[in-house]
Design a protein around this nucleic acid. Structure first.
Length: 806
RNA sequence: GCGGAUGUGGCGGAACUGGCAGACGCGCUAGACUUAGGAUCUAGUGUCCCCGACGUGCAGGUUCGAUUCCUGUCAUCCGCACCA
């Protein structure tokens, strides 16, 4: 009788062996495969079973690639700058450098429990000066290329985190980090001109093997639209207002115009009668937050008293102000066609503005219109020379026509905004800029990088819009690199995303003192072949990284312009009832106890077995017993069979090839939960077969071990050794098992026999039986169950016989 | 409001291009072995009015045949949210 599997001993043994003899070595003959995890920020809470899942998925995939003969780049590091780390330190009354180091040590310990093949020689830490030197270097390059610029403007401000935020960091008007309502604050900011890359970021999505969901989110975030700018003269003023519209086909239907309250002409348009109301409205709007505005059930607005002239037909249209028009999109002014736009319709109804239909739906005007007709489908009416044209055609042609008429121009617009890049916090990379009265903003010369973050006692955010660094006179006061005169350092720091936008490049050359990454290594090991992580970074990290990569491509640092060829988003592991695991909810499951009780291999398998890797799964501790039992049965079957040493049978060969086929195709399809159930299924079949034959033959044993190796690496190594091998199961020469379709084919197949689509019997027939013969046998099996007249007989080879009878 | 995903036993979930719904596992029931069992093994386990019928959120449709395709609808989750 076999001794049951002792996970503690075996896992300890192989951890040590792997440390002494790494299994992932570059020998100069292998092709590279770069499998990347989204690196964690070292939270004080440590890892829970949800974090584990992503790492297990990537490690299984990595080990599979390793066995296929690739040299793996499978690194790990720390995204350690940023708000969460700083807030945690403040809460604990410690310095972020200290708490971060502690948290990294703890999480590293936990990550090692996963037994993932991380190459710790490649480790990076975004807070390491040798690392952030290059984060700053990229900024300097961007500054030199005119992509980083200073601007004073109203930005999103989190009153709780006391810092400015990028648009991407504001979710439903609230801070992505802490959930506080975001307000506006006028601040001098460093901005990155990501908008210059909008088209490339949009178009290159096509070349990526990414989940459609993420591509779509980025597409919508970039938000490109096509239309025209049209100039409306203001009556009685020597001024024109330019509007942006995607529906120039409806220009004849414009019965009013609305300007954002922040529009520069807004106040000027007021007449003596309307001045009080207009100024009042502008002031009130300026005080309202985004959240406030979004909660509006009804549109608000005020008539300026002025009129504009529709350049196409000379119609006089009133100019209104309303906060449903956004100041920072398009031109901050719109022409309003209430008949064909929902918002304009609502506004016109409320303020009793005429509605003119210019598209005939189904050939005629809509009577008693109750909602706008927004589709560009139908014939133009009430549109002068455009009458009779198809709206859909006109929509495309109108911009050019308008341009020819000299009343506007064809144009495009984006929702994407430039990236607000400064943070008024301590724990981040100092922006490497010096302000000089004579020379203005000057980049710190490359040889003086990094600009070290000063080590200080007090680093709490000020809340004034000044960075805490501004208080450190000896750090702030410096000399201008340009003229040598007195100058002051930039005191804002970079957002957390700065360090994470390029870390995957540094892994392949993390000790390079001269360059961010050597071109040779970049060409050899990059880009990333497979990137695995949660979907939460769809428009943050993943967009920023693409932007950085494109920039570095443009300046010749790397020779590719997309960083991540393939992306996989794993689902979240939640607590009971789909509630997100969090300390405050008290539903966090730590992997530590489970590893101790069931072993790393069991937890690895269970993390995959809980459900499809791309979907969220509820965690239930009890299920781990199932995979634990399976591993024990697997162990017993293999060890018993090694002892029994039986000869191979034909049936066994067939089962072996079927097993290789099933496991491999499921693995290739990333259906990891069904890989595990497949192992269980085949194990049961093999146990049954072994009962008849006395055991499993040697070749099948070796295949079983190799197949399970990426999933349960410790057990696989131990069994591999027990089976008489002297090398590691992950050794290139073992390879991944291959199947032969000819050998897995059955001679006989089971076929269901149905009457009118309902199964009445099951028969076994030869695989290549003729239709007539199959049907005859089916009828025979049915016997007197078959009554009535046979109308039709269907035979689907190897699957089903259906007799249609009445 | 718009867009997307999901919906299958007591539970997690399987089911390839339409072809035996419920694989695999948890849980549960019974038995075996045991001083013992939260160990292990064996058998069973969708529902019901159980020789039959009904069953994949709901209502229709296409088909010899639908978890799978089509139309409508409901629920949950996620993303976007006055972007003209």
């Amino acid at each position: 009788m076999a001794v049951s599997y002792n996970h503690k001993e075996v896992e300890k043994k192989w951890r040590k062996k792997w440390e002494e003899h790494p299994v992932n070595v570059e020998d100069g003959t292998k092709e590279k495969y770069y499998c990347l995890d989204m690196f964690p920020y070292p939270s004080g809470n440590g890892l829970h079973v949800g974090h584990w899942r992503g790492y297990v998925i990537s490690d299984v995939w990595s080990r599979y690639k390793l066995m296929q003969g690739y040299y793996l780049i499978h690194p790990m590091g720390w995204d350690a700058f940023g708000l969460p780390a700083e807030n945690y330190a403040i809460k604990m009354g410690t310095h972020p450098a200290k708490s971060t180091a502690q948290n990294i040590a703890n999480i590293k310990r936990q990550i090692n429990e996963i037994a993932a093949l991380y190459d710790w020689d490649r480790e990076v830490n975004t807070t390491d000066p040798d690392y952030y030197k290059w984060t700053q270097w990229i900024f300097v390059k961007m500054f030199q290329e005119g992509l980083a610029y200073e601007k004073e403007m109203p930005i999103n401000w989190c009153p709780s985190c006391k810092t400015g935020l990028a648009n991407e960091e504001v979710v439903n008007g609230c801070c992505d980090r802490c959930g506080s309502e975001v307000t506006k604050k006028n601040l001098r900011q460093w901005m990155l001109k990501i908008t210059k890359y909008a088209d490339r970021l949009l178009e290159d999505l096509d070349k990526l093997d990414w989940p459609e969901k993420v591509k779509k989110m980025q597409t919508e975030w970039i938000g490109k639209s096509y239309g025209a700018e049209v100039d409306f003269q203001v009556e009685g003023m020597d001024k024109a207002i330019t509007v942006y519209t995607t529906r120039p086909d409806t220009l004849h239907g414009a019965t009013f115009m609305v300007l954002a309250p922040e529009h520069k002409l807004a106040a000027e348009l007021a007449t003596d009668e309307t001045r009080t109301a207009v100024e009042d409205y502008i002031m009130k709007s300026s005080m309202r937050s985004n959240v406030d505005r979004m909660q509006d059930k009804e549109k608000t607005g005020v008539f300026t008293g002025s009129y504009a002239i529709n350049p196409l037909n000379g119609a006089k249209v009133p100019i209104w102000l309303s906060d449903y028009v956004l100041a920072d999109y398009g031109t901050g002014a719109i022409m309003c066609v209430p008949a064909h736009d929902d918002r304009d319709f609502e506004f016109a109804k409320k303020f009793q503005i005429p509605i003119i239909q210019v598209i005939a739906k189904d050939g005629k005007e809509i009577e008693n219109m109750t909602e706008a007709y927004t589709e560009a489908s139908g014939t133009m009416i009430n549109s002068g020379e455009w009458n009779g044209m198809e709206s859909a055609v006109l929509k495309k042609e109108a911009p050019v026509m308008i341009e020819k008429m000299g009343i506007g121009k064809k144009t495009t617009n984006y929702k994407l905004r430039d990236w607000v890049f400064s943070r008024q916090r301590y724990w981040g990379e100092p922006i490497p800029i010096v302000h000089c009265d004579k020379c203005g903003a000057v980049a710190v010369p490359e040889e003086q990088l990094p600009v070290l973050l000063p080590d200080v006692e007090s680093y709490q955010p000020t809340g004034t819009g000044e960075s805490p660094l501004a208080d450190i006179a000896e750090w702030v006061n410096t000399t201008c690199p340009c003229c040598g005169g007195p100058a002051k350092r930039e005191t804002n720091t970079m957002p957390q995303w700065a360090g994470s936008s390029w870390y995957f490049l540094r892994y392949v050359d993390n000790k390079n003192k001269e360059q961010l990454v050597s071109r040779e290594k970049a060409d050899k090991y990059l880009p990333v072949d497979m990137y695995i992580g949660g979907v939460e970074h769809a428009v943050l990290h993943l967009l920023y990284s693409r932007f950085y990569t494109k920039f570095l491509y443009d300046i010749g640092v790397v020779d590719f312009d997309e960083p991540f060829t393939k992306l996989f988003n794993q689902g979240m592991i939640t607590g009971k009832n789909g509630i997100k695991m969090s300390k405050s909810k008290g539903n966090v499951v730590s992997p530590d106890d489970l590893v101790r009780d069931y072993g790393c291999d069991s937890l690895r398998l269970y993390e995959l077995f809980v459900g499809p890797p791309e979907l969220d799964s509820e965690w239930d501790d009890r299920g781990i017993d199932g995979v634990y039992r399976f591993l024990n049965r697997f162990w017993n079957l293999v060890t018993d069979s090694i002892e029994a040493n039986v000869a191979v049978t034909k049936e066994m060969v067939k089962l072996r090839h079927k097993m290789i086929y099933d496991i491999t195709t499921r693995l290739e399809a990333f259906s990891l939960n069904t890989v595990i159930s497949g192992f269980m299924e085949y194990n049961n079949k093999l146990i049954d077969l072994a009962k008849k034959t006395g055991g499993i033959d040697g070749e099948t044993i070796q295949v079983m071990i190799r197949l399970i190796a990426p999933f349960a690496p410790h057990m696989a190594e131990e069994l591999w050794e027990k089976a008489g091998n002297t090398n590691s199961v992950f050794d290139k020469e073992n390879g991944w098992p291959e199947y032969d379709e000819a050998l897995m084919a059955d001679d006989e197949v089971e076929v269901a026999v149905q009457i009118n689509g309902r199964t009445k019997a099951v028969i076994t027939v030869a695989k290549d039986i003729a239709k007539e013969e199959a049907i005859a046998k089916g009828k025979e099996a049915l016997g007197d169950k078959l009554t009535g007249n046979v109308i039709k007989e269907i035979y689907v080879p190897g699957r089903i016989i259906n007799i249609v009878a009445k």
